[in-house]
Amino acid sequence: MTGINWEDPFCAEGNNCFRIGTDELGNAYIAVAGQEDTPLTDTTKALRTMILDIKAGKADHLL
Protein backbone atom coordinates (compact mmCIF):
# COMPACT_ATOMS: atom_id res chain seq x y z
CA MET A 1 0.00 0.00 0.00
CA THR A 2 1.22 3.49 -0.75
CA GLY A 3 1.63 6.09 1.99
CA ILE A 4 -1.48 7.96 3.07
CA ASN A 5 -1.31 11.68 3.85
CA TRP A 6 -3.91 12.26 6.60
CA GLU A 7 -5.69 15.59 7.13
CA ASP A 8 -6.38 16.94 10.61
CA PRO A 9 -9.19 15.07 12.40
CA PHE A 10 -12.80 16.20 12.05
CA CYS A 11 -14.44 15.94 15.46
CA ALA A 12 -18.13 16.18 16.27
CA GLU A 13 -19.38 16.89 19.78
CA GLY A 14 -18.15 14.18 22.10
CA ASN A 15 -15.63 11.63 20.89
CA ASN A 16 -16.63 11.25 17.24
CA CYS A 17 -13.43 12.02 15.34
CA PHE A 18 -12.47 10.81 11.89
CA ARG A 19 -9.81 11.66 9.31
CA ILE A 20 -9.60 11.86 5.52
CA GLY A 21 -6.43 10.99 3.70
CA THR A 22 -5.16 10.68 0.15
CA ASP A 23 -2.33 8.73 -1.40
CA GLU A 24 0.01 9.57 -4.28
CA LEU A 25 -2.41 7.95 -6.74
CA GLY A 26 -5.32 10.21 -5.74
CA ASN A 27 -7.24 7.53 -3.82
CA ALA A 28 -9.14 8.80 -0.80
CA TYR A 29 -9.42 7.16 2.61
CA ILE A 30 -11.45 7.74 5.76
CA ALA A 31 -10.74 6.33 9.20
CA VAL A 32 -11.71 6.82 12.81
CA ALA A 33 -9.00 8.98 14.39
CA GLY A 34 -6.48 6.69 16.01
CA GLN A 35 -7.41 3.74 13.78
CA GLU A 36 -5.81 4.92 10.54
CA ASP A 37 -4.37 1.44 9.94
CA THR A 38 -7.87 0.19 8.93
CA PRO A 39 -9.34 2.90 6.67
CA LEU A 40 -12.28 2.72 4.28
CA THR A 41 -11.53 3.87 0.77
CA ASP A 42 -13.60 5.62 -1.90
CA THR A 43 -13.26 8.63 -4.17
CA THR A 44 -12.28 11.91 -2.53
CA LYS A 45 -15.53 13.48 -3.76
CA ALA A 46 -17.69 10.72 -2.23
CA LEU A 47 -15.94 10.88 1.13
CA ARG A 48 -15.97 14.67 1.29
CA THR A 49 -19.68 14.74 0.39
CA MET A 50 -20.43 12.22 3.13
CA ILE A 51 -18.54 14.25 5.73
CA LEU A 52 -20.18 17.52 4.70
CA ASP A 53 -23.61 15.87 4.91
CA ILE A 54 -22.83 14.50 8.36
CA LYS A 55 -21.60 17.90 9.55
CA ALA A 56 -24.79 19.47 8.15
CA GLY A 57 -26.85 17.09 10.32
CA LYS A 58 -28.21 15.01 7.45
CA ALA A 59 -26.78 11.76 8.81
CA ASP A 60 -25.67 12.42 12.37
CA HIS A 61 -26.66 8.90 13.43
CA LEU A 62 -23.82 7.47 11.31
CA LEU A 63 -21.25 8.83 13.73
Rank of each mutant, 00 (worst) to 15 (best):
D53I: 00
I30P: 07
E36W: 08
N16G: 13
I54A: 10
K45F: 11
D53W: 04
A12H: 12
Y29I: 04
T2S: 15
A28W: 04
E24L: 12
A33Y: 08
K55E: 10
V32M: 09
P9W: 02
C11G: 02
R19I: 00
N16S: 13
L25H: 13
A33G: 03
L40P: 01
K55I: 09
G3D: 15
L62K: 06
L62Q: 07
I51F: 04
P39E: 00
P9D: 02
C17M: 00
D23Q: 05
L47W: 01
L40N: 10
I30T: 06
L63D: 05
N16C: 14
C11L: 01
G14R: 11
A33C: 08
I20F: 08
L52M: 07
E13N: 14
V32I: 12
G57A: 04
L52P: 00
V32Y: 00
M1C: 11
I4M: 05
D37A: 15
A46N: 14
N16T: 13
Y29L: 00
L25Y: 11
T2W: 09
Y29R: 03
T2Q: 14
G26Q: 05
I20P: 03
L52N: 13
E13H: 13
T22F: 03
W6V: 01
I4T: 09
P39F: 06
M50S: 05
T38G: 09
Q35A: 12
E24N: 14
L25R: 13
M50A: 12
R19W: 03
A59D: 08
T49V: 10
G3V: 15
L47N: 03
Q35N: 12
V32E: 10
R48S: 05
D8Y: 02
I51K: 08
K55V: 04
L25N: 15
G34C: 05
T22V: 14
W6F: 00
P39C: 04
R19L: 04
G14H: 08
G34F: 08
A31V: 03
G14C: 09
I20G: 07
P9C: 03
R19Y: 02
I54F: 08
T22Y: 05
P9E: 00
G57N: 09
N27A: 10
T49E: 12
F10T: 14
C17K: 06
A28Y: 01
W6H: 03
G21V: 03
T41K: 07
G14W: 11
G3E: 15
I51E: 04
N5S: 15
T43M: 01
Q35R: 13
L47I: 15
Q35V: 06
G3N: 15
